[in-house]
């Protein structure tokens, strides 16, 4: 089977804790996979490794045939900003930039001219229902609006994979639902894969597949649905 993302035997430790102890996981093109588990089970570390933000000490991360863990920081970053969108729990927007500038940032960093980048960013903000706050800075946005801007930024380059770490974790149920619905509709439309770390059962229920982590290893996971 042709996997978009292939994680094999990942190990990663921090100061005194072993966050990942040999985790393997595949994500198919267009698949939505939820990673759940108690706090400290290694969910976020797994996501960061998958997105190429962290490099595991052992094991391999293969994204679209490229061995991510063997690339250097700059090469990984460049790949990430084109092919992998990232949504965190909160606070990932650049505080000095407006919502539209934040959403346009990955395109600008990739050398797109300002006008084109802004048009694309505005289109995404529109789709996610936050067009009216395009010229406001993050401090003026509500939590739900910030997260939708973050989703717009993650999707603006048309990535093949979006990695989301508790995207609704800091939001109440209703605001969380708005963000989640927008995120899912967007990735399903674009046939983008989504790897989402969550402790919100509502998020897990909407995924195609759930992978449960316990103490840094996969405790259980439904088999991949052939798509």
């Amino acid at each position: 089977m042709n996997h978009l993302l292939e994680l094999r035997g990942l190990h990663k430790s921090f100061a005194r804790t072993e966050a990942l102890r040999g985790v393997s996981l595949d994500v198919q093109p267009g698949e939505v996979v939820a990673v759940t588990g108690a706090s400290g089970s290694g969910k976020s570390t797994l996501l960061h490794c998958a997105a190429g933000v962290l490099v595991p000490e052992a094991g391999s991360v293969t994204f679209a045939g490229q061995r991510l863990h063997e690339l250097d920081e700059s090469a990984r970053t460049r790949l990430r900003r084109r092919e992998i969108g990232l949504v965190l729990q909160f606070g990932q927007l650049v505080p000095e930039l407006t919502a539209a500038q934040n959403a346009a940032l990955p395109l600008l960093l990739d050398g797109t001219d300002r006008r084109t980048a802004r048009t694309a960013a505005l289109a995404w903000l529109e789709r996610l229902g936050v067009a009216e706050v395009a010229d406001q800075v993050p401090a003026e946005l509500s939590g739900g609006e910030s997260q939708r801007v973050a989703v717009a930024r993650a999707l603006v380059t048309g990535p093949r994979l979006v990695c989301a770490d508790e995207p609704t974790g800091a939001l109440d149920t209703v605001a969380g639902e708005v963000v989640l619905t927008a995120l899912l509709a967007a990735v399903r439309d674009a046939h983008t894969s989504l790897l989402v770390v969550t402790h919100d059962n509502r998020v897990a229920a909407r995924a195609d597949r759930e992978v449960v982590l316990r103490d840094g290893s996969v405790a259980s996971g439904q088999p991949a649905v052939a798509s």
Binding site: N201, R202, A204, A205, E210, Q222
Partner: peptide, 11 residues
Amino acid sequence: AVHLAAMKHQL
């Protein structure tokens, strides 16, 4: 798994 499926249906 059953509960998640039920929840998915409701959602």
